[in-house]
Simulated assay, not measured.
Amino acid sequence: MEEMMDDVVATLSDAECWQLLAGEELGRLVTRVGDVLDIFPVNYVVDRDTVVFRTAAGSKLVELTVNDEVLFEVDHYTDAAAWSVIIRGRAQRLATEEDVEAADELPLRPWLPTLKYHYVRVSAETMSGRSFRRGPEPDRYGIADY
């Protein structure tokens, strides 16, 4: 069975993960405060092997202040293939004038017509990615080889 999976699922290198992340704009940020998990869709940009997004003041920013450990996930699919990348890392609000000015130069604009004054950078401690070849499910009830 594992041999059949070799050509269906492949592990991605960190470099491949960053390349795929750079080609997308929408991801999901997972935060945890105590026993409460939250997930937020965010539009983002890759900057020097980190993920940067903008946010308004609110629960997302408060939760990141309480616990900066996050997961960030992006995936993509077509009829023939799919991939998924997960970053386990830390989120930090950009606070210095120099950091904010540099972030202002990134090609990152809010998708919604709202003011988002805060930049957050997610730095990866570990990342994992897998690519998948899509296709129909094999016959589960066929005649078994004996």
Rank of each mutant, 00 (worst) to 15 (best):
V42T: 12
S13C: 06
A103T: 09
R133L: 11
D79L: 14
R134C: 11
T31E: 00
M1V: 10
R32F: 07
D14F: 11
V51Y: 00
G142Y: 05
A81G: 09
R140P: 01
D79T: 15
G34L: 02
L29F: 04
L112V: 13
R54G: 04
K116I: 11
D35E: 09
D47G: 05
T78I: 13
W18C: 04
E105M: 01
T50Q: 10
I86N: 07
G129E: 02
C17V: 05
D99H: 12
P138W: 00
V33L: 00
D7F: 07
T96I: 04
V46R: 00
L64T: 10
Q19D: 11
D38K: 08
D104C: 10
A91G: 15
G89T: 06
P107N: 11
E3K: 09
V52L: 03
Y119R: 04
E3C: 06
V62S: 15
G89S: 12
P110L: 07
M127S: 02
N43G: 10
Y44M: 03
Q19S: 01
E69F: 15
E105R: 03
V9K: 10
V85Q: 01
M127L: 06
E3R: 13
A82R: 09
P107R: 05
A80V: 02
V52H: 03
V52S: 00
Y141V: 08
T31M: 04
R134W: 08
A82N: 14
Q92Y: 11
D47L: 09
D145L: 14
G129H: 00
G34R: 04
L64N: 04
W83P: 07
Y44F: 05
D49R: 03
G89Q: 11
Y119A: 02
P113T: 11
T11V: 15
A81T: 15
I143N: 10
T114L: 10
V52E: 00
P107A: 08
A81K: 15
I87A: 00
